[in-house]
Simulated assay, not measured.
Amino acid sequence: MYVKRFPQHTGLIMNFGDFSSVVQLGVGLHLGTALLQMYGEIGLQPMIRSIERMQNVAEDPNHPPKDEYRDQLATIISRFEVYKIQMFTDYKRYLIVNSVVAAMLIVILVFISYCYSTPISPQGSIVFVALSILPAPITLFCHWHDATNALRPLLDAAKALEAKMI
Results as ranks from 00 to 15, higher is better:
3 V>F: 13
3 V>K: 06
4 K>Q: 12
4 K>I: 09
4 K>E: 12
6 F>S: 15
7 P>K: 15
7 P>T: 09
8 Q>A: 14
10 T>N: 08
10 T>C: 11
11 G>L: 07
12 L>Q: 12
12 L>N: 14
12 L>I: 13
18 D>E: 12
18 D>M: 08
21 S>W: 11
23 V>G: 05
23 V>Q: 05
26 G>M: 00
27 V>M: 02
28 G>Y: 02
28 G>K: 01
28 G>H: 02
29 L>R: 02
31 L>H: 02
32 G>A: 02
33 T>G: 04
34 A>E: 01
35 L>C: 02
36 L>T: 04
38 M>F: 14
39 Y>K: 05
40 G>F: 00
41 E>K: 00
42 I>P: 04
43 G>W: 00
44 L>H: 04
44 L>C: 04
48 I>A: 07
48 I>R: 12
49 R>C: 08
49 R>H: 07
50 S>N: 06
50 S>Q: 06
51 I>S: 04
51 I>F: 03
52 E>D: 08
52 E>I: 15
52 E>L: 07
53 R>C: 10
54 M>Y: 01
57 V>W: 14
58 A>T: 15
58 A>N: 07
59 E>R: 12
59 E>L: 14
60 D>K: 10
61 P>W: 08
64 P>W: 10
64 P>C: 14
64 P>K: 15
66 K>I: 12
67 D>R: 09
68 E>S: 13
68 E>H: 13
70 R>H: 13
72 Q>D: 13
73 L>N: 09
73 L>F: 12
73 L>I: 15
75 T>D: 12
75 T>F: 15
75 T>Q: 15
77 I>R: 11
78 S>K: 11
80 F>G: 06
81 E>K: 14
83 Y>M: 13
84 K>T: 14
89 T>L: 09
91 Y>E: 12
92 K>I: 06
94 Y>T: 07
94 Y>A: 04
95 L>N: 07
96 I>C: 09
100 V>D: 08
101 V>F: 02
102 A>Y: 00
103 A>W: 04
104 M>I: 01
105 L>W: 00
105 L>I: 00
105 L>A: 00
107 V>Y: 08
109 L>Q: 01
111 F>L: 01
112 I>G: 01
112 I>N: 03
113 S>Q: 03
113 S>V: 00
116 Y>F: 05
117 S>V: 01
119 P>G: 00
120 I>Y: 01
120 I>Q: 00
120 I>D: 00
121 S>Y: 02
123 Q>E: 07
124 G>I: 00
125 S>F: 02
126 I>K: 11
129 V>Y: 03
130 A>Q: 05
132 S>T: 03
133 I>H: 03
134 L>E: 15
137 P>W: 14
138 I>R: 02
139 T>K: 13
139 T>E: 07
141 F>Q: 12
141 F>Y: 09
143 H>R: 10
143 H>Q: 14
145 H>I: 11
147 A>Q: 11
148 T>H: 11
148 T>M: 15
151 L>Y: 01
151 L>M: 03
152 R>S: 15
153 P>D: 12
153 P>R: 10
154 L>K: 05
154 L>D: 11
155 L>I: 08
155 L>N: 10
155 L>A: 08
157 A>W: 05
157 A>P: 06
160 A>H: 10
160 A>Y: 07
160 A>S: 10
160 A>Q: 07
161 L>N: 08
163 A>D: 04
164 K>T: 08
165 M>Y: 09
